[in-house]
């Protein structure tokens, strides 16, 4: 504690020095994070990178195999299938989920009776997202004799077992992901409230209408949050695992139609005791996500507005 006070004092004294850069202050503020990075995160990450170059079954020592695991990946038809599934999943569900989240955040932001209840109710599915109960529930809704088909039958349409048909099972997973839009919705809500009211007041005085205010204040001021949600939901969706695991009974079925990349990786590592291969898959995924994120950041310069 006393060192913190000293830092404060010395920083004040060195007010001129601070103009050149805040290296020392940064080190102070980042100290917990650096400690976490080097003591907790870096070691296991480096270890997994090393293990990706080994044949490692978890039960005995890893043996160095060079690039073998990475080469095997390109000859693995299930891995290619899992990439297809994952890309479809990510690029369909993330935009839909964000659109739903933003739309509802805008509706629920304005003063209205029962807001707290609506917000909480809309968030509920996100609380259930990974529960084992979802497996049974999803069958009850999207099964051959499920709720959806009962509604369709009312209109004279004959459905199929959506959740267990290889052609449709992935769609039910996408719906599940969109349905749990609570997290981005909450972040949007917080973001909307972060926009200083003085901007709106100033705009009102200038005679700008609501729509004008929305496009010239709300939208630009919200872009950092939209950007955040986009980046994070992409990263999350690429690593999504629990929902597919629960709904498919653990194996990405039927016929690998819901074999998300991380689910396949998990099975390889723990069920098939091939952790070397799983580690290689993980680092390959990191490259994909990293590339995607980099593109996002580069593109953000053109549409994300920061107040600083």
């Amino acid at each position: 504690m006393s060192s913190v006070i000293q830092e404060v004092a010395s920083t004040r004294r060195a007010a001129g020095e601070r103009r050149k850069g805040d290296g020392r202050m940064a080190a102070l503020f980042l100290a917990p994070w650096f400690a976490g990075l080097f003591l907790i995160t870096a070691g296991p990450m480096a270890a997994s990178l090393y293990l990706s170059f080994t044949d490692y079954d978890l039960l005995s020592s890893p043996t160095w195999v060079g690039l073998d695991n990475y080469v095997r990946m390109f000859e693995d038809p299930r891995l290619i299938q899992s990439l297809k599934v994952t890309f479809t999943y990510v690029f369909v569900s993330v935009p839909l989920q964000l659109a739903a989240a933003l739309a509802l955040a805008l509706v629920l932001d304005k003063g209205m009776r029962g807001l707290a209840v609506y917000r909480s109710v809309y968030y509920l599915p996100s609380l259930l997202g990974g529960s084992v109960a979802i497996a049974i529930l999803w069958r009850q809704i999207f099964g051959a004799d499920g709720l959806v088909n009962q509604v369709l039958a009312f209109f004279g349409i004959e459905g199929t077992g959506w959740v267990s048909h290889p052609d449709y099972a992935l769609n039910t997973l996408i719906i599940l992901n969109v349905w749990t839009f609570g997290a981005p919705m909450v972040i949007f809500l917080a973001g909307l409230r972060q926009i200083p009211r003085m901007y709106y007041e100033a705009a009102s005085i200038d005679g700008a209408g609501r729509l004008r205010q929305f496009w010239s204040i709300t939208v630009p001021m919200l872009t950092p949050i939209v950007f955040f949600n986009l980046v994070l939901q992409l990263i999350n969706a690429f690593q999504n695992f629990t929902q597919a695991f629960v709904v498919s009974g653990g194996n990405g079925g039927p016929a690998d139609s819901t074999l998300l990349y991380t689910l396949y990786l998990y099975r390889k590592g723990f069920a098939d005791l091939d952790m070397g291969y799983a580690s290689a898959m993980a680092w390959f995924l990191l490259l994909i996500i990293g590339g995607m994120t980099l593109v996002n950041f580069l593109a953000s310069k053109y549409w994300v507005h920061y107040d600083d």
């Binding site: 990263i235 590592g269 993980a282 995924l285 990191l286």
Partner: peptide, 15 residues
């Protein structure tokens, strides 16, 4: 910092 959340937990958990 961002990189640290891009690796699936399943390969980190054993180390």
């Amino acid at each position: 910092m961002l990189m640290t959340i891009m690796l699936p937990i399943h390969v980190i958990i054993v180390p």
